[in-house]
């Protein structure tokens, strides 16, 4: 009775973490969760950026508050560092999973079709390189406006308003930022939809809502972020 033996087997299975990390669905789950963490951060970041339209005092005060948020429960900058650590872990896990899954995906389709035709949407096809572009952008962005290492025209700690105006007064600052934000919009458009499906939220009745939410998030984030360099270029913020 081999079949009954199969039904009653009691062999041990690997742990939850191991099952997840060893499987393609598990790695995609990690990507979905870390992606949603980063997406949540981006919404807050974009919202905070818009304070620049209320003048230098409002924006600089907000910048200072980021350092003291959570007080008195948290010590100065602790809240900031917690956010930073969570984000670094999220970015690294997201990137490692993307790299491992991409290698696997490319190996699973070793030879191409002779007859080529356009496949999938632009946002879907650009996820991998778009992700690499975003990673490079983050490095530049941190060196420019957090550490000031590559900041044009003298970085002034504690005066973010002036630093932002300086960056967007250079042509390359505008180009790099705007291109990266367009890439972000495409990445979020497919990423949010894909994350929802990976986490099992997809269904015939819900898919339309999920797609609309993905489009809306992509649009609002891109427009909200790009508003700042456009405002500096047009002199609305100076």
């Amino acid at each position: 009775m081999l079949s009954m033996a199969l039904a009653t087997r009691t062999d041990r299975r690997p742990s939850l973490t191991r099952t997840l990390w060893a499987s393609t669905i598990g790695k995609k789950t990690v990507m979905a969760l870390t992606g949603l963490i980063m997406l949540g951060y981006l919404v807050a970041h974009m919202y905070g950026n818009l304070k620049i339209f209320f003048g230098p005092d409002s924006f600089n005060d907000y910048g200072h508050w980021l350092r003291v948020m959570g007080e008195p429960l948290l010590h100065e900058k602790w809240g900031l560092w917690i956010v930073r650590v969570v984000l670094v872990v999220a970015v690294v896990l997201h990137g490692v999973c993307a790299y491992q899954l991409s290698r696997r995906d490319l190996a699973a389709r070793p030879s191409r079709y002779v007859h080529k035709r356009p496949r999938a949407s632009y946002a879907t096809r650009t996820m991998r390189w778009g992700g690499v572009i975003l990673a490079l952008f983050i490095v530049w962005h941190v060196l420019d406006l957090t550490t000031g290492t590559v900041h044009p025209g003298g970085f002034q700690p504690g005066r973010p308003y002036q630093n932002v105006v300086d960056t967007f007064s250079t042509w390359y600052g505008n180009v790099v930022y705007i291109v990266a934000m367009l890439a972000l919009g495409l990445h979020v458009r497919h990423g949010f939809w894909s994350a929802a499906q990976t986490l099992g939220a997809g269904s015939a009745t819900r898919d339309r809502l999920l797609r609309t939410t993905a489009d809306l998030l992509a649009l609002v984030l891109t427009a909200g972020f790009i508003a700042v360099p456009v405002a500096v270029m047009t002199g609305v913020v100076s």
Partner: peptide, 30 residues
């Protein structure tokens, strides 16, 4: 390979298995 939700599979399927099936299995797996 893994799924990147390109949706090509459901378009090609001669029996019309919907793309939502993948999300349903992800839910089952988790």
């Amino acid at each position: 390979g893994g799924c990147t939700l390109a949706g090509e599979c459901a378009t090609a399927c001669p029996k019309g298995i919907p793309l939502q099936s993948i999300s349903m299995m992800n839910r089952e797996f988790l």
